[in-house]
Amino acid sequence: MSGGSGPATEEFERWSTEVKKGAAALAILAVLEEGPAYGYEIVKRLSDKVTFLQLEQGTVYPLLRRLEKERKLLISEWDYADPTKPKKYYRLEDEGKRALKMMTETWSVLTNEMKELLRRVNAQ
């Protein structure tokens, strides 16, 4: 998507990082809307469904932790069915569902308006 170096590339990279950072939380909440999932499952679903995010595997877990411990949007439970690989299942709290709803609405408005705006940019 980007090429070379210079102020434009630098600005693009900065902007791209910010967009991804904002979208990652929404993507995780959306994945969990489908049902409870454990860390590795979430990582896999994200890398399959939202390639744009290009999330490094190590960054998903801290984000899950933040959404659970600090923002109280998720709740987790350990599953010891396979003792060699205990799994921490995450699911949405009521607050998480509310946050997802609001974020989805804002995201829809944003993408529609940006699409409209960018159509004119592309037309030029």
């Binding site: 590795y40 877990y61 932790r65 205990p86 799994k87």
Partner: peptide
């Protein structure tokens, strides 16, 4: 400890 267990499971599955 929870964090390390989670990472361990991830690495094994990956």
């Amino acid at each position: 400890q929870d964090t390390l267990t989670e990472i361990r499971t991830h690495l094994i599955e990956e």
